[in-house]
Structures are given as structure tokens and as C-alpha cells.
Design a protein around this nucleic acid. Structure first.
Lengths: 346, 346
DNA sequence: CTGTTAGCGCCTTCAA
DNA sequence: TTGAAGGCGCTAACAG
């Protein structure tokens, strides 16, 4: 291995001089700088990042952690896109990404703390947030630099989120506009902030359109196609009437489609369906599915930029910026009634 | 920050003694060991991984690199699953994963070399392999520990792959069995080994079923739904007749479905379609699509295990093991003809 | 502008 | 079984 000493020897200078040209210091004569650079090239020298990290006590690497139950759709393209976004800015700003996929929230929490205490990463980007989130508590308490993709329901933290309330409100309103009377909210885990926010938007639309809302209209489903399917079956068995579904994820919406199919309801005539995330294949599903398009790539970009910015400008660390990204309702056949331009209400 | 010295002081021993209990040395009295452990707990001490890495000259982190053109489907759930697999064994064996998504093959290559020369990672897992792959050349030449997810067309290297030849052969045979006469191969970039392997399997089946094959039957498409669609349109314009398509990826297969739709061919009656990767939503596409299921998660597992094994047992580094995982054809409606149990041939 | 010195936090001989 | 000393490769005062 070629070290800074080898370069120093070859350029006939001291190691610190070499260190200076690496750092791009200007307190150096052009002449020796050139000599050192030549030596570095001839020796094919690349500074050891580990030694650097130890000396400077930071690593230029960011940890990204996800908690995914094995079966749950980590396949969700959402995460791939977020990662691509993060990667783009990391690359540009010369940072690295340490990835940790964890089987449970507990293990994620432990992993996060460990990455920080081991000093492997300078900061963290974490994703799913619960209403009462122990990970966020711990991170905040220990003053660890991190940004949340999502929103914190409690203390203010750095976060990047899409406007779930607004998006759910728009999507629900769209269904009402199409003439659907009884829209059900089909959400995932109630403890997740994202579920609550989408539910809030749904309720808001109900209120604005003066539709009755009670607890029975908000279903909680296991996060899968099957889960969505079963939740609707149960709802029906419990005698809940509905002619449309706002699902908090495409998987659940697909479950609704399956429900319609097995129960012989026609979509969109007898059942309107709207999903969340706009998975790429949705236009091939029959009928093509309406869904809220989330700016996942941009979410990744913003999160990484925000984190690195606070890392490099500790002054800003105080202000808990919360970035909100817009989303867009992509209307397809699953929620458009032939004669449904019923713009009653409001 | 609490260091090994703090622990030493509190336990009234020397730092080297603390170091020994961290390493789990047995040349230590139970008594002092306990005392040290207690001190570590009381101080909430976690060894600094960077300092450790420097002293031991390895990092216990593995680099995983992908080259993805921005638009191309990194969204492909394949990678998420591979990552999940890698993560599972990394977690279990106490390794970390450094993720690098690169815009191009060149940048991927540079990033790989850099990660290694900077000593940020102990080894690499790389994914896409080309027929004449400069990345693999470079890695092999510099004796860098790495495993390839895929197959190297040239020099033998450690690799984990699914049996593409066999899978394509089976899928093609399935189409012939269903009575299709003219099956087209719809592949992605010709320079990719995976494309060549799937094409080889396709040819093999053609040969076994005594069907004519010439170059015009193997289409090269841009890797997207649109790309698959256009490739088939062009084929038709060039006067190539076909009644079935074996696509080397689900996206391309979806393009075939789109082609059928716009050209008013009925699937599967007039056009049979088979894809690769069995993306989760495929059963909701209309008609449900036949596809080859790849063991992506297992691919990730095997790759990580193989790499760590060679890292920790340098003796094995010589033998270039190649692991081959089976895949499975998931038959759905897009390739099953009503009266198509035509088991002619062979 | 450049070299010397002293760490960063941990590991690893070598003695005792 | 334990401690002292030196080193991993680089950075950062402090002199000069």
C-alpha cells in the first residue's frame, strides 16, 4: 500500500506538505505542489479514507436505514427511487451511503445507534415514522444529526415529506366529484404517521363535501394485496356500504380491485378505486388505476441535501426545517365514471 | 466521546487489557474481564469502528454498486430483493453495506476502484456484467475481492447467477407447447451477458423443437415498456411474422402487451407473451402475465455469503466458484391458449 | 511556504 | 495474565 510517506519521500517533502496539497491548501508554492501531484500520480496514490476519518473525526458517509418486515413490499419502488435520489446528491457532494435494511423497528433503532456510536456515519436518513416513534425520540435525545423522510408527529425534526394530507384530500374530492357517494378509507398500520395524514386528508374532504364520516369508514389493513382484499370483505360482512375506496397504497388498492373482481363489482361503475404511489405498472392493470404520484426521487434528493447541509453548517442545526413536496393525482379509468361529471356539493 | 482509555481508567487496567476483552481473548482472568465489562456498560462504551478499521486494516463493510441510467428501471424490484438478501447476511455476520448507484458503467468502475483504494470497503458485489466488461477486467487485474451477480463471459470470477439459459429454454418450450409457431426473442442490450444467455436458451429451444432461427427473430429493444413496444412495431413493419414473444424482462413483455393492444391482437389467442422477473403486480395485469420467477433475494444471500467467506478464508480465494440458482416459470394467462395443449414436437 | 511534533482510538508485539 | 510501547495513515497546531 502506498501511503502519504511514500509520496512525501518521492517528492522530497514532508508528509504534511503532501497532506496540504491533498486538502487543496493555498499556502504552498506552485512548484512543490506540482512536484507532489506528480509524485501522487506516479505512485497512483489515493488517500486512505479510514485514516482520514480517524484524524478528522468524520467519515463523509450517511447511513440510510429502513425497517421492513421481510414480506412487506420493500419491493415498493418508492424506496428504490428515494435511494436513487439520495445517491445522486451523495455522489455529487462526495459522500457515501451506508445501507441498512432491518427486519423490525427495534433492530433498526439499535442499528442506528450503533452506526453513530461506532462513528461509521456522520448522520442518518430514516424513513418510516410512527406516531410515537422511539427511534426518533432516541435520535433527537442524543442530538444525532438526521433527517426523516416523512413527518414527525411529536417533536420537530428535520424532515422531508410529501403532502399527504393535501393529496388524500384531493383524491377523495376527485371521487366525490365523480359521483361516488360512500368512499371508504383503506389504510395500513394506524400507528404510522403517513396513515394518519392520509386519513386526515380524507376526513377533510368528507367534511368539505358534507359527507358523513364515522370510524367504520376508515379501515385498517395488513400492508399487502391480500390485506386490502380481506379488509374490504370484512367491511362488507359487517354491513358497511361503499361505492369507492381511497387506498393509502397501491398494494391495498390492488386488493380492492381483487375484491371487486371476486365480488363481481364493475370498476369504476360500481366501485371507484384510487391508490397511492403510482407504481410503474399501474397503467397496465385492468382497469388502469388512478393513483397519487409521489416524488420519491426528489424526496431522496432533498433529504440528502438537507442532511449534508446541516452537517456542514452546524449553525443551521438549530432550525428544524420541514420540507414538503407536492404530489399529483394521476387519474385513470379505475375512478372515472362514464356519466360521472357530477359536481354537486361544495 | 468515551474511548478505550476511559474504560481502562475506570476498570483500573491498561487499555490493552480492555482491547483484549473487546476481542474476546481468553488470556485474561475472569475477574478483570468482568470488571472491564462492567466499566464498558457503565460508560456506555462502543468501540470506534474507524479506529479499529485503521488498526486492523479492514472495515467489515462491503460495497454494492449498480450502474443505472437514470430512467432505466432501478425501480426494478429485482434490486430491492437482492439488497434485502445481502442485508440479511450482512446483518447476521456483522458487516455493513456501502451502496453506490452510478449513472453509467464508467462511473461505476471509477467508484469501485476508489472505494477499494480508499480502503472504505473490504470487497465488492457488482451486478450487471457485459460481454467484454472493463469493470470485471479491472477488478480481476487488481486482485480485488469481489463477487459478481450474474456471470462473467470471460475470465472466471466468483459469481452468483440464476440459470438464464435453462430458464429461457423452458419458457420458450412452453410457448411451443402451447402451439405457438413463431416466437420472437425480445431482449435488452445485446452487450449484456444476461441478454446473451437468455437468447442462448431461446435458440436452444428453437433447435430442440426444430424451428427455424435466424437473426431477425432476436430483437434488441431499449430497456423499457416503450422500447419493447417500438421494437415489435418495427419488426412488424419489417415484415417479420410472429405469434409469440419471449421477453427478457417484464418491462419489455409489457411493451409487447401494449403492442398487442394497439394493434388489436388478442392475448393469448393471437399473441403469446412471456416475461422475465415476475414483478409483483403481474397477476393484475390483463391478461395476467406469464413470467420467469428469479430468486433475487436468494441471489443476494448467496453473493454476500460467498464474498464474506472468501474474505475471511483467504485460502479459498483461488477457486473461482460460480453459483447457479434455479428459476421457475410462472404460467399465467398471457401464454396459455384455450385449446393449446398442442404437445407436438420432440 | 514548509517541517516537526503530537495526536485521532485502537490493536499488537514484546516483556515482565 | 497484564502493561508499556509503537504503529495503522493522516491531520493539525506550532514553529521557523
Amino acid at each position: 500500500m502506498v501511503t502519504i510517506k511514500d509520496v512525501a519521500r518521492r517528492a522530497a517533502v514532508s508528509p504534511s506538505t503532501v497532506s496540504r496539497v491533498i486538502a487543496g491548501s493555498n499556502r504552498i508554492s506552485l512548484q512543490t505542489k506540482l512536484r507532489v501531484q506528480q509524485a501522487m500520480e506516479e505512485l497512483n496514490y489515493v488517500p486512505n479514507a479510514i485514516a482520514r476519518s480517524l484524524a478528522r473525526s468524520h467519515t463523509r458517509t450517511i447511513g440510510f436505514t429502513v425497517a421492513r418486515q421481510a414480506d412487506e413490499a420493500f419491493a415498493n419502488p418508492f424506496f428504490s427511487e428515494v435511494m436513487r435520489g439520495m445517491s445522486t446528491v451523495a455522489q455529487a457532494l462526495d459522500y457515501n451511503i451506508l445501507l441498512s435494511i432491518n427486519p423490525s423497528a427495534e433492530e433498526e433503532r439499535e442499528k442506528c445507534m450503533r452506526l453513530i456510536k461506532e462513528r461509521r456515519v456522520d448522520g442518518l436518513i430514516v424513513s418510516t415514522s410512527r406516531m410515537k416513534d422511539r427511534l426518533i425520540d432516541a435520535l433527537a435525545e442524543e442530538q444525532i444529526p438526521f433527517v426523516l423522510i416523512g413527518r414527525s408527529a411529536e417533536k420537530p425534526v428535520l424532515s422531508v415529506n410529501n403532502d399527504n394530507v393535501q393529496a388524500a384530500r384531493t383524491a377523495t374530492a376527485h371521487l366525490f366529484e365523480q359521483g361516488y357517494e360512500r368512499v371508504l378509507f383503506l389504510g395500513g398500520d394506524r400507528r404510522l404517521v403517513v396513515t394518519q395524514d392520509r386519513l386526515a386528508g380524507y376526513k377533510q374532504a368528507c367534511y368539505e363535501w358534507q359527507r358523513a364520516y364515522d370510524e367504520s369508514h376508515a379501515l385498517e389493513a395488513e400492508f399487502s394485496i391480500e390485506g386490502g382484499y380481506r379488509a374490504l370483505l370484512e367491511a362488507k360482512e359487517r354491513g358497511i356500504a361503499f361505492d369507492a375506496v381511497l387506498a393509502a397504497d397501491d398494494l391495498l388498492a390492488l386488493g380492492a380491485l381483487k375484491y371487486a373482481e371476486t365480488s363481481h363489482y364493475r370498476v369504476p361503475e360500481q366501485l371507484g378505486v384510487v391508490g397511492f404511489n403510482d407504481s410503474p405498472l399501474l397503467s397496465f392493470v385492468r382497469p388502469p388505476m388512478t393513483s397519487v404520484r409521489i416524488l420519491a426521487y426528489e424526496l431522496g434528493i432533498e433529504a440528502m441535501e438537507l442532511l449534508i447541509d446541516t452537517l456542514e453548517n452546524p449553525a443551521k442545526a438549530g432550525m428544524k426545517k420541514e420540507i414538503l413536496l407536492p404530489s399529483e393525482l394521476i387519474v385513470r379509468a379505475s375512478s372515472v365514471r362514464s356519466g360521472g361529471e357530477n359536481t354537486a356539493g361544495r
